[in-house]
């Protein structure tokens, strides 16, 4: 147990130092911004991974919570003059409240029906963003979201924003890891492996799923908050169905049930469009192919899949 904790702490320390080094050494504005986006997407992927990878419940509408976070802070800061730091808890709480209300009936569903249910929910929220123009600016979007600042530190400085986002990523990792290696995390993984047996062990599967759904929505809203204040402009397109799929792809590629996999998946998927810049037309084809190929070849995702292959070859060597 102690050993285990130490290994985790070590990886956090390495992670922290890596953030500091990257933050200090990368000069190019564009790259710092790209890295910040990766951080935001990591939070997003982590949120869905907790739900999908650990508890085994699919959501095809997670962009809705991302959007709720972004739009809530936009509306509160611009229309009602809130400080962003006051808008942040409001955004997260609202998102969690919506997740609670939606999850109550939806999480009774499973498999395909949960997929369709969450998809439908995501569509409705997207339509609301688009049609409630007086609040959200409609399909032309919402401009003029103020930048973040704490006292003298302004986060319109991209480097500061980078630190802010990545420290949040680190904290989210610690929180998620702690959850996973606790009674709650074990119960969630139990639901994933066998819902029947989990129920027979006295786990209130319905409450458990609901709680992780709400937690996951909270993380997504946090990501949305950062996005809104980083870009200062949001539009419904940023929170559409295809974005929900993008989040699923991050989780699937990086590896379900792997916290570090979320980082990997988010990094790959944020940089992919940059690499494919010349062929942005191919973006969708590539996403689709990735999803299918990973599911067919490495259903555990890259981190887990490669780790499994490594373990298998090693154990083969062990047994002559």
């Amino acid at each position: 147990m102690l050993k285990f904790l130490n290994r985790d702490r070590l990886s956090y320390a390495v992670f922290f130092i890596a953030i500091a080094i990257i933050g200090l050494s990368v000069e190019n504005y564009y790259y710092v911004q790209l890295l910040t986006f990766i951080g935001i997407n990591t939070i997003l992927a982590l949120g869905l991974n907790m739900l999908m990878g650990y508890a085994g419940q699919i959501s095809l509408g997670h962009a809705a919570f991302y959007g709720l976070g972004a739009y809530t802070t936009a509306v509160l800061t611009v229309h009602y003059g809130f400080s962003p730091w006051l808008a942040l808890p409001c955004a997260i709480l609202l998102s969690m409240l919506v997740a609670f209300l939606v999850g109550l009936p939806t999480l009774k569903l499973s498999g395909y029906y949960l997929g369709m249910g969450t998809l439908g929910f995501g569509m409705i929220v997207h339509i609301v963003f688009r049609e409630w123009s007086s609040m959200t600016g409609g399909s032309s979007g919402f401009i003029g979201i103020p930048p973040l600042e704490i006292g003298p530190v302004s986060f319109s400085q991209i480097r500061n924003f980078f630190y802010l986002v990545w420290l949040t990523v680190l904290i989210s990792f610690i929180v998620s890891k702690r959850l996973i290696h606790s009674r709650i995390g074990r119960a969630l993984r139990a639901i994933h492996d066998s819902e029947n047996a989990a129920r027979a062990m006295g786990i209130n599967t319905r409450n458990m799923k609901l709680e992780i759904f709400v937690f996951s929505a909270g993380l997504s809203a946090l990501a949305g908050f950062f996005y809104a204040h980083l870009v200062s402009f949001i539009s419904p397109g940023t929170f559409s169905f295809i974005v929900s799929i993008k989040i699923v792809t991050m989780v699937v590629i990086g590896g379900m049930a792997s916290v570090w996999g979320s980082l990997l998946g988010a990094s790959l998927l944020t940089m992919l469009p940059e690499w494919l810049h010349a062929f942005s037309e191919f973006e969708m084809v590539v996403y689709g192919l990735i999803l299918m190929l990973v599911m067919v070849l490495l259903p555990q995702g890259l981190t887990r899949g490669l780790l499994d292959i490594y373990e298998r070859t090693r154990s083969k060597k062990d047994q002559p």
């Binding site: 009674r183 119960a187 993984r189 492996d193 047996a197 062990m201 006295g202 709680e211 937690f215 049930a257």
Partner: peptide, 26 residues
């Protein structure tokens, strides 16, 4: 069994109703 978990974790899940740790305390 809970196939992706260790044997020990499986047995610990068995204690679910005898322990109290919730989201917040975790």
């Amino acid at each position: 069994l809970f196939g992706s978990m260790t044997a020990l974790e499986n047995v610990m899940v068995g204690q679910h109703v005898r322990t109290r740790c919730g989201f917040w305390s975790a």
